[in-house]
Simulated assay, not measured.
Amino acid sequence: MHNVETSGHNVRWSALVEQLEGRLDGLARAFTTRVREIPEYGESQVTVQEITETARETFRRLIRGLKGGDPTSQDGLLDFASDLGSKRARAGIPPESLTSAVRLDFSILWAELLEIAKPEDAMLLASRVDQVWKVVDEFATRTHTSYLTERVRMAQEESSIQREFIARLFNQSTPSLETSAQVASALGLNPDSRFALVAASGEPGAQLRSAVTHAGTARPRLFLHESGGNTYVFWPLPSVRTRGAASNNTLPAALSTVPCGYVSDVLGLRALPAAARTAETLAALLRPRDAGPLSADAAWARLARQNLQDAGLDLAAELEEALAECKGGERDRLLETVRNYLTTGNVTLTSEQLFCHRNTILNRLNRFQELTGIDLAVPVQAARLVVAWA
């Protein structure tokens, strides 16, 4: 096979590369014109002057790389690529836009080579296309690697800063307006918005952390705080909410099956620490059969019972003592009737559900009142049973 890599070809190649060096300004202008057509570049904080100067330096180093064919040893080309990738990451250029911009290097450089070459250079160019591509590809690869590394570092730094501000918020019982404003600015939130919050520990807490990790930047954005073995997650609610809508409608899908304490509506960032304490209390009331978040609306009776027990009052024990004189199956019949009546609040519906005559239901309710002193027709007294049996 005929070898085109003769000394004459090497001399001619060097001459072409020398001509490229004399056209750096034109190469930079061509790159700037085309890269400004990429929307994210046209609207970015990277100025036209910076783009042009960077392009000129990029082509200068690429052309030097073409002389030796080894980017790692030519004029700091790869170090320059690393610095460029970091700069574009800090400038907020999206990755796909950076890819489009870097791809321009080869097309512009090759088009310039074709323009200065003569017809008899066709075989030479065909033999050198791999070399040109290798130099540009090495540059592009290093640029992208540095870009991604910087993006990861920036994300970690941002996350760390946000965690610090969130901790500052939750470490105060009642955060000041200044703290609230600072945290809101750091998180990109409105300090007066409404929020929802959940809390859990142990395995459910790990599930909350996993949900936040997998949610990423999806909406609504989830914010994480961990303290004292508890995991807290909060998120902003839509600015417009449907009146009377179920609170569970505000729950992100990733949290809907995690057993945790749930506060569905918190007014402002300053109220989040108090809401966290409420959610922590609700989480302590969870039972094995609970398969999702527990709100105050659903757990108010459990919460009341727990508070009464903490105060030394046990309504359930008092009821058991009052019903102790029941004989045979009377106790069970009374309890069944009362529980059904508490659910419906209607004697007729209760009689239908239990397949009893309406008078039978009334007699049982009267008997229950006789034994316990609780008149179910009086809401305040009926509430004692709801709490006792929570």
Rank of each mutant, 00 (worst) to 15 (best):
A199D: 07
T143D: 05
I161L: 07
Q162G: 09
T145L: 03
S160R: 00
A155Q: 07
F195N: 07
P236I: 06
L187W: 09
T213E: 08
R219M: 01
S227P: 04
Q172A: 02
R221W: 12
A186L: 07
A200F: 07
S180R: 12
L222H: 01
F195T: 03
E138D: 09
P220S: 13
D137V: 07
R221N: 13
V240N: 10
S180V: 14
L177Q: 10
S176D: 05
R128L: 10
L208V: 11
L177F: 09
Q207P: 14
F170A: 05
R221S: 13
S180C: 14
D130C: 14
S239A: 15
F234M: 00
R142I: 03
A126P: 06
S193V: 08
E164Q: 03
S173E: 14
D192M: 13
Q156D: 04
S239Q: 15
L224E: 13
E226R: 04
G188I: 01
R163Y: 10
V212P: 08
V233I: 09
V240P: 00
L187I: 01
G229Y: 11
S127Y: 10
S185N: 08
I166N: 03
V240A: 10
R142F: 00
F165H: 00
E138H: 06
A181P: 06
S210A: 15
G229Q: 15
V152P: 02
Q131A: 00
A211P: 09
D130V: 15
L224V: 15
S176I: 09
R163M: 09
T231G: 01
T141M: 11
E158V: 00
P220H: 10
Q162L: 03
L169S: 10
Q162S: 04
S173G: 15
A167E: 09
S227R: 14
R151H: 01
S201G: 05
R168E: 01
V212M: 09
Q156N: 01
I166K: 01
K134L: 12
L197V: 11
M123R: 11
L197K: 08
L197D: 00
G228L: 08
F170R: 07
A206P: 11
D192W: 01
A126D: 12
S239F: 12
R209S: 15
V152I: 12
M123A: 08
S227K: 12
Q162P: 05
L237F: 04
A186N: 06
V198Q: 08
S227V: 13
S160V: 01
L125K: 02
E157V: 00
A206G: 14
Q131S: 13
P175I: 01
S180G: 14
R151G: 06
S146P: 02
F223E: 04
W133C: 06
L237I: 04
V183I: 06
T213A: 11
D137E: 13
A215Q: 12
A126R: 14
T143R: 09
S227G: 13
A199I: 13
V240Q: 00
P191G: 14
P238W: 07
E158L: 10
P238A: 08
T242L: 12
T231H: 10
A206I: 12
A199L: 11
Y232N: 15
Q207V: 15
